[in-house]
Amino acid sequence: MGGALVAAYGSAAAVAGRYLFPARPAGKRWIYVAQVASLQRGHALPWRTPSGERVSIARVGDGQSTDDFIALSSTCPHLGCQVRYESQHARFFCPCHNGVFSPEGKAVSGPPAEAGQDLVRYALRVDGPLLYIGLSERQIASAGQEA
């Protein structure tokens, strides 16, 4: 009896240990977004990750380097609503609770600013004529594949 008990609860503990052991390193993959030439300065390209998350990708400079582009999550860090870019005010605006973000994604006013929550920024990479975005494996998995 004792042996069986120890074996059973012991393996339960082992399961817990394995669970706490970090999962695979969060690998980042570079996913094609668009051609560099197709992005105009001052305009935001609405884009969706394969998993369906909305990302707003904009050209902020005229150069060809990674620094000339910015990719921000369109999901408001406050409650997960979708922000939209208002070019006339040069800001991102969240209609749910009037959250306002600067074009760089910094929270300017509204609930996100109070909580100090900026828009999540994605890594970008320019490779020749192409613009790539750095996504985690999870953001790459399509919505349909999870089911």
Partner: peptide, 10 residues
């Protein structure tokens, strides 16, 4: 649920 080992089980 999806990534941590045995997370779904726990």
């Amino acid at each position: 649920t999806e990534e941590a080992a045995y997370g779904w089980f726990l």
